[in-house]
């Protein structure tokens, strides 16, 4: 009797989760399917439960690969900006997190509290003065203008500090005796040990930058400087004249990320739930 009961529960719970998962995946699946039908049909019917299987075609993709230089410019911009953003923000914040965890220095606690406090300042109050600053620094419509404000990553500092606290300090003493400088210890010994945390933060920063919209919207002006989200947003007109690029282009911005996710799930999860790390 009891056994039957738990078997029934198991079936119900699994079915419920399967339905919820299908609902979550439905928009993505339907986007991928819709990229294989003519955009005029998508424009006419929207995304529909009755999928027009007879209209399947590769025309959106042939168009985007042969006719749309613009799209690939945006793709390149997004790749460049995300890569630079990852490298710079990781470099800056890993040093800080490490220093906070490994050295006792004057004001270290105060500094840490300040970092946590800055985490809470909403970007919306910084946005206009930052934009003014970019005008003054002549960085409007440049990669640097998009990247520079983003390299301050208090979340990453917080995460690296927590991670570095768990590293063995004896290694540092051993290296000192071997004549290594403090900087050598960091770059040659400790940084490699921080690998998993670097991976998680690279994903957090990379995804944030790849999907970032508001700040690039302010800074970038000309079409050939746009990142993918900005460029795709310009195609979101009610007239539907660019929907072939829009839909196939969107699929190609998300599919690489999903593939990366499937391979590096663990790092994605620790990167995106960093807010939950306890202090």
């Amino acid at each position: 009797m009891k056994k039957n009961n738990s078997k029934l529960l198991s079936i119900i719970a699994t079915v419920v989760m399967a339905i919820v998962s299908l609902i979550a995946l439905f928009p993505i699946i339907s986007m991928v399917l819709s990229s294989f039908i003519p955009s005029s049909s998508l424009m006419r019917n929207g995304i529909s439960f009755s999928f027009p299987w007879s209209e399947l075609t590769l025309s959106n993709y042939t168009y985007i690969f042969t006719q749309s230089a613009e799209y690939w410019t945006w793709y390149g911009n997004s790749l460049w900006i995300s890569a630079l953003m990852i490298v710079l923000s990781l470099f800056f914040s890993s040093m800080v997190g490490y220093a906070l965890a490994m050295y006792d220095f004057k004001g270290s606690n105060l500094f840490f509290v300040a970092v946590v406090f800055i985490l809470m300042v909403p970007f919306e109050i910084l946005m206009l003065p930052l934009f003014q600053l970019m005008i003054d620094m002549m960085l409007v419509d440049t990669y640097l203008g998009v990247i520079l404000p983003g390299i301050v990553a208090p979340v990453a500092v917080f995460f690296f500090r927590q991670y570095a606290l768990g590293l063995p300090k004896e290694l540092m003493d051993a290296a000192r005796i071997d004549g290594s400088t403090e900087y050598g210890i960091f770059f040659k010994i400790m940084l490699p040990l921080m690998g998993p945390s670097l991976a998680a933060m690279a994903i957090l920063q990379g995804l944030g930058s790849w999907n970032n919209f508001l700040w690039p919207l302010l800074v970038l002006r000309s079409n050939d400087m746009f990142t993918l989200p900005l460029g795709l947003a310009t195609l979101l007109t009610p007239y539907g004249n660019n929907y072939d690029i829009l839909i196939a282009g969107s699929v190609m911005t998300i599919i690489p990320i999903v593939i990366l996710f499937l391979f590096f799930q663990r790092y994605f999860i620790s990167g995106l739930t960093v807010g939950g790390v306890k202090g």
Binding site: P229, L232, A233, I254
Partner: peptide
């Protein structure tokens, strides 16, 4: 997986 998409897409 939906968390991987941008708000725009």
């Amino acid at each position: 997986i939906p968390a991987l998409t941008s708000t725009i897409v």
